[in-house]
Design a protein around this nucleic acid. Structure first.
Length: 271
DNA sequence: AAAAGCCCCTGGATGC
DNA sequence: TGCATCCAGGGGCTTT
């Protein structure tokens, strides 16, 4: 479910409401990807100061230390003062004076990790490798181009890896490459300047539009306030194998790159 | 340093 | 209806 727009929409849906809250209890059930990294009791009484995002990680700042939270493939958050009883896949719960934050994650690829600070090893291990934020000013054309220049791997996989630019998941990787008219298998280093320009614009455009639409995706999504997104952007290629390209009618193809599906139009994305 | 594979886990869809 | 197989929006870790 969550690529950058969904993670950001999730953040926006509860950041203001939880800010200033005091932690009353904290519970990590069936283990997620890693252990929390501290005793839950040690977090009681701390205050939530803000919720930030870095890549697909949510950073919950406490007055001392922070929680890093990742939704993985199937995670979603709810924040409310009136939640129903926890279900089978609710693996993390933090009760605060402003409401209860709960992580539901069937596949358990998600994570909740405590770090004493953003410079602590527990945080750096996860954050250090992350590339530029696509919706921020530091995602400049010049830096994007420089980042791609030193990568010989296929552009689709470089986008997905997240060390040049973060937040582009498997759906948006296919979609942005279609919009930019670039073949997913092309080496990142070999992209011509105009192609890099088009890709740069496509990434910003698609992610910004998805976010503006309430952070919904091409599939299901609801924010931590339980609101569905209203993203009406239709997939041009994703999951459309065998169907006609919406632009030229050519049959959309699917290929495997690094154990993930890639969809593209061989006519609109010639090289 | 970079790239390629592997793996974590559950559920839904599909096919026999 | 039951069972096996395949696939899924992520990403850290280990091996080349």
């Amino acid at each position: 479910m969550p690529e950058l727009p969904e993670v950001e929409a999730t953040r926006l849906s509860f950041a203001d409401r939880i800010a200033g809250a005091k932690v009353l209890s904290l519970h990590l059930g069936k283990s997620l990807r890693w252990p929390l990294g501290c005793a839950t009791a040690s977090l009681l009484g701390r205050n939530v100061q803000a919720v930030r995002r870095r890549g697909k990680y949510l950073l919950i700042d406490l007055d001392q230390g922070l929680l890093l939270l990742h939704l993985g493939m199937s995670g979603s958050l709810m924040f409310s003062s009136e939640l129903a009883a926890p279900g089978k896949h609710d693996h993390f719960e933090m009760v605060t004076t402003h409401g209860t934050l709960r992580l539901n994650d069937p596949r358990r690829f998600g994570a909740v990790v405590y770090a004493a600070s953003e410079e602590a090893p527990a945080a750096r291990k996860l954050l250090d490798r992350l590339g530029m934020e696509p919706l921020s000013d530091d995602f400049s054309l010049v830096r994007f181009r420089a980042g791609l220049k030193r990568r010989k791997a296929a552009i689709k996989q470089v986008l997905l890896a997240g060390d040049v630019v973060v937040g582009v998941g498997n759906i948006y990787a296919s979609e942005t490459l279609f919009l930019a008219g670039i073949r997913p298998t092309l080496s990142a280093a070999k992209l011509t300047r105009p192609r890099v320009e088009r890709l740069h614009a496509a990434i910003r455009d698609v992610l910004a539009r998805a976010l503006a639409g309430g952070g919904s995706t091409l599939r299901n999504f609801s924010s931590a306030a339980g609101e569905k997104g209203h993203f009406q952007l239709e997939a041009m290629v994703y999951a459309r194998e065998g169907q006609p390209c919406r632009v030229c009618g050519t049959t959309i193809r699917c290929l495997r790159q690094g154990q993930r599906s890639t969809f593209y139009c061989a006519h609109c994305q010639k090289t």
